[in-house]
Write a protein that binds this DNA or RNA. Structure first.
Lengths: 211, 211
DNA sequence: GTTTTTGTGTAGCGAGCGATACAGAAAGTT
DNA sequence: AACTTTCTGTATCGCTCGCTACACAAAAAC
């Protein structure tokens, strides 16, 4: 995919595809799918419409690619936190904490692109909305898996409702994204994340090893 | 405003203004401001474009009126809960619980119109987005006031960060709205609301009256 | 140098957008 | 009845949308 087999034959592309895609990501992230017009994109990407269509297909395909690359570059922190931390609690705690930072990086669109890029669901872009919803639900299932692992490990009470706890975490994440879009600063969002973790169920006995 | 001074002179309106406005509310609530076109509105409201413009001004004015009436008919439960319950905790608890119900009423757009109706902020409708953001921030300040009241009453530890706690509640509300839009059912949302309340800070001593 | 291939720029397609001009219809006023 | 006022339906307006036809430019292949 990346390695070019041999020299291209025709006239070479006069712009850097990755740079242009990055600009497209920023545009979609900032304004959402519908509200980002082709002329917005060509202006931001610094290319003409025919070049855009030649390089990326159509608006829909460009958006799909933007979401994919966004996930790799900016949206992976939740998955990473859950995978790298020893317990679900630590993973979620880190994910929430990192969200506070990620959602408020200066000179970058605030909040989560997947959460906010297609909330206005016009019939014409219903497929886009459905695709993003699926991604969010996939994320919830990922969190739920981490919760179940904690229950199995005895780090959470056996009666814990894993589905609800996962939905709760997903909701607070969406809420923080929303809050960030409205201008809430990083410090306040971190305080929100701390508070949210107080809701994490406590085990009856702290540890059964100290007699 | 409501009482008609005397008999109207010209040809009477052939549709009920309130019913038409209700239809407009549903449309904006479901699809958002930008994604609801004038032709969508005229179809749903059962009137022609000139009638719409004569009765409501332009699209922007119709939306403003829709948001106002939405707040009176559907969005007032938070203010009501905070005002009627004896403590902030009880008020927020009730608001969260009612949100779970309000956001998932069958045959009604899911989630909160103010939160979701203008998240896609195209430059053309930046004013609309700003207006809605202001309403949300006003809501946060309302919650913050209730929290401060609890602190003063000794129902919350003196060191409680009122601003952060208010932002947390606002975030979980926004998250639940998002979650509801994605299809999460009322039962699960209620479980989320219960979980969220576990984050509410506890006072050191339950009550200083029992010796 | 000629041919082939591919990208670029101009210019414009049909469709839908928000909004309105205009003529006619339906009520009260006289 | 005639007149005035207001609302309604048709038929658009100018504009922007996503998208593309077409001629020209710039590279490799021969």
């Amino acid at each position: 995919m990346v390695a070019k087999e041999s020299k291209q034959r025709g006239r070479p592309r006069s712009f850097d595809r990755d740079t242009a895609l990055e600009k497209a990501i920023r545009s979609f992230w900032e304004h959402g799918y519908e509200s980002t017009s082709i002329s917005d994109l060509t202006r931001e990407m610094g290319i003409s419409a025919p070049s855009l269509y030649a390089a990326f297909g159509d608006k829909r395909a460009l958006f799909e690619e933007a979401v994919t690359v966004y996930g790799r570059l900016y949206g992976g922190f939740i998955t990473r936190a859950l995978a790298e931390e020893p317990t679900g609690r630590r993973g979620v705690e880190r994910a929430l904490r990192e969200a506070a930072a990620e959602y408020t990086v200066p000179d970058r669109p605030r909040g989560c692109m997947v959460i906010s890029a297609a909330l206005n669901t016009a019939p014409a872009s219903a497929e886009v909305a459905a695709s993003l919803r699926q991604k969010r639900q996939q994320n919830v299932r990922e969190i739920e898996r981490a919760v179940r692992a904690d229950i199995a490990a005895g780090d959470l009470p056996p009666g814990t409702d894993a589905r609800a706890l996962a939905e709760y975490v997903s909701a607070i994440l969406a809420g923080m994204s929303q809050s960030a879009r409205d201008g809430t600063d990083r410090h306040t969002l971190e305080a929100v994340a701390d508070l949210a973790m107080n809701a994490w169920p406590r085990t009856e006995q702290p540890a059964p090893d100290t007699p």
